[in-house]
């Protein structure tokens, strides 16, 4: 086993196979933004507090600033771009828009990825659970109320049977 300072990594991003030559010290967030060119993943603190860089790794929400890019070798990563299409907003995105759950938009990709991961696993999450989960994502603009409403309202699109 050889320890490396740079490495060619191959992984799946938003369903597509990608590769990148990265330094071992490169975070997954920086790799996605600068090597893969997906700048929707935002970096707000780089120390694992703000949640703006949340992506989905093998189905689970993760902070991409708390992962080395080399750790993603062989994994499946989904970013906000992978949860979007050009034709129309997804039900989750439309719910965010309807509820005015974003202002400056900087924390929004992290909110979308986190909420998507949550509702995929727990489509019946109640308000307390939604607040608990979103408490790992900072938003300075909205005061969160509209975000929580937007996520609750989007549950039906994930197969929630209602309360």
């Amino acid at each position: 086993m050889i320890a490396v300072t740079t490495m060619k990594i191959e992984f799946e991003v938003n369903g597509k196979a990608v590769s990148a030559d990265v330094e071992a010290r490169t975070t997954l967030a920086d790799c996605l933004r600068y090597d893969i060119g997906l700048t929707g993943t935002h970096v707000g603190c780089e120390h694992g507090v703000c949640g703006a860089c949340t992506v989905i790794v093998n189905g689970a929400a993760a902070r991409s600033c708390l992962m080395l890019a080399v750790q993603a070798d062989g994994e499946k990563v989904t970013t906000v771009e992978g949860l979007s299409n050009d034709e129309a907003l997804t039900p989750l995105q439309a719910s965010f828009r309807k509820h005015h759950a974003l202002q400056c938009g900087f924390c929004t990709p992290g909110m979308i990825t986190t909420a998507h991961a949550l509702l995929t696993h727990e489509p019946n999450a109640d308000e307390e659970r939604v607040r608990d989960v979103l408490s790992g994502n900072l938003c300075r603009c909205t005061g969160y109320i509209s975000i929580v409403e937007a996520v609750l309202d989007a549950r039906v699109a994930y197969g929630s049977k209602g309360e």
Partner: peptide, 19 residues
Amino acid sequence: VERVEDLRFLRGKGTYVSD
């Protein structure tokens, strides 16, 4: 009125300066 800005922000298509 729902915001026009949202269409790009929600898709991760905003361009902030670090982008």
